[in-house]
Amino acid sequence: MMGVGMYQNFLNATGAGVPAWMIGGHAHLGVLSILAIVLGFAIPAMKVTGTLEQVVTWTFILGQWGLPLVPWLAVGGGVAVLHPTAFLWGGLLMISMLIMTWQAATQPEAAVGGGGDVDPTPADD
């Protein structure tokens, strides 16, 4: 991601301008990478395990990499046949996020670290 951003800066600095397909792919991958980090914390925090954990993980991974590749390969690389696959990759991301939304909405507050009768312990600093 940093390399793509630096290349875009180079294109802008030299006056060439950045093609829209490059900006779109870079933005998708950047935002989805940040969301992947959040998901890495949310899955264990919400105690999502087993098959459901695998479904959330793999639908997100495939969508995370597939969606940004569509503008890069379909437009930038001239492989126009890949355009319809954006719906597949986006759909996979939606499945992953809908499952996690359902988990967040249906779990008791204590199951995700909130509530309960335990008082916090002060630090020793």
Rank of each mutant, 00 (worst) to 15 (best):
L98R: 05
V81A: 12
N9H: 11
W102R: 15
T106V: 09
E53S: 09
I43K: 00
H26Q: 03
L35I: 15
H28K: 10
F10W: 15
L11W: 06
G116T: 00
E53Q: 15
L93E: 00
V38N: 00
A104G: 12
N9D: 13
P120Y: 12
T85S: 12
N12W: 12
D117F: 08
A20I: 14
I61Y: 08
W21E: 01
L69C: 14
T57H: 15
M100S: 01
G78D: 02
H83R: 13
W72A: 14
Q103H: 08
G91P: 00
W58T: 04
A45E: 10
K47W: 09
A123Y: 09
A16D: 11
G5A: 01
W89F: 14
Q107E: 07
V79W: 14
M2W: 13
A13Y: 07
S33P: 04
V70S: 06
G116D: 05
W65N: 13
M100F: 04
T106R: 09
T85Q: 00
I43T: 09
A42K: 09
W89G: 01
A110N: 13
I43Y: 03
H83P: 05
I34R: 02
Q54K: 15
L62W: 08
V112T: 14
V112R: 13
F87S: 10
G91S: 00
V81E: 11
G90V: 02
A110I: 15
G50M: 01
L88D: 00
V81M: 11
G76D: 04
L32V: 02
T121H: 09
Q8R: 04
G30A: 09
G25L: 04
T57N: 10
L98Q: 06
M97N: 01
V75I: 14
Q8I: 04
M1C: 07
P120Q: 10
D119Y: 09
H26V: 00
G50S: 03
A104H: 05
W65C: 10
G90C: 03
G3T: 05
L98D: 03
K47V: 04
G24Q: 14
M2V: 15
L82M: 07
W65P: 06
T57E: 09
L92Q: 00
L11C: 03
D124N: 13
W21H: 07
A74L: 03
I99T: 02
G25V: 02
M94A: 15
G3M: 02
L88E: 00
I37F: 09
P44M: 00
T121P: 01
I61H: 10
A16P: 03
T121Y: 08
G76V: 05
A104Q: 14
V70F: 06
A74G: 04
W58K: 05
A111S: 11
I23H: 05
P84Q: 05
Y7K: 07
V81F: 12
Q8T: 05
N12M: 14
V118H: 07
V118R: 09
H83I: 14
V38K: 05
D119I: 10
P122T: 02
A27Y: 07
W58L: 11
Q103T: 08
G113C: 03
L69Q: 08
S96W: 01
V56H: 06
V55Q: 01
V81G: 08
I23P: 04
A74R: 06
